[in-house]
Design a protein around this nucleic acid. Structure first.
Length: 120
DNA sequence: TGTTTGACCACGG
DNA sequence: GCCGTGGCCAAAC
């Protein structure tokens, strides 16, 4: 079964460590989607049953652009702060330091594998 | 089947 | 360094 870009995005987001954040563009570029919007759209399909830490995905400015899609507008910030990520004015502080680069951490030869979905 | 939309990004002024 | 514009690809209407 060929994975859709949703599944690719989900797999990558699940691999984001606690206390770290990544960006839509990083995921899009890493997956070679070429369209960062698709990442956001894919995450829009997420539900709390998916077990995907979507709160660790922010836009390139570090702003919590997707907070409005959570159960509560402040939930995203709460989750990040719980993981030790400083958030102020809906923006991740010290994004440059907390940024998690998929292609750098996983390597350019990383491939989607169903087993990745079993990780939490 | 064609149009619109979307949790965005890069670029130019 | 901020603002406007184009592009990007797939799903929803």
């Amino acid at each position: 079964m060929s994975p859709t870009y949703h599944e690719l995005v989900y797999a990558v987001v699940r691999l984001v460590p606690r206390g770290r954040v990544t960006t839509y563009g990083a995921i899009a570029g890493f997956l070679g989607l070429g369209a960062s919007r698709m990442v956001g759209w894919a995450l829009n399909q997420l539900t709390w049953g998916s077990g995907i830490p979507a709160h660790r995905v922010v836009n390139r400015k570090g702003e919590l652009s997707g907070r409005h899609h959570f159960s509560s507008p402040t939930l995203m910030q709460e989750l990040l702060e719980t993981e030790g990520v400083l958030v102020a004015d809906d923006c991740v502080q010290d994004l440059k330091n907390l940024f998690w680069n998929p292609s750098l951490e996983l390597g350019d030869d990383w491939e989607y594998a169903p087993t990745s979905l079993n990780l939490v």
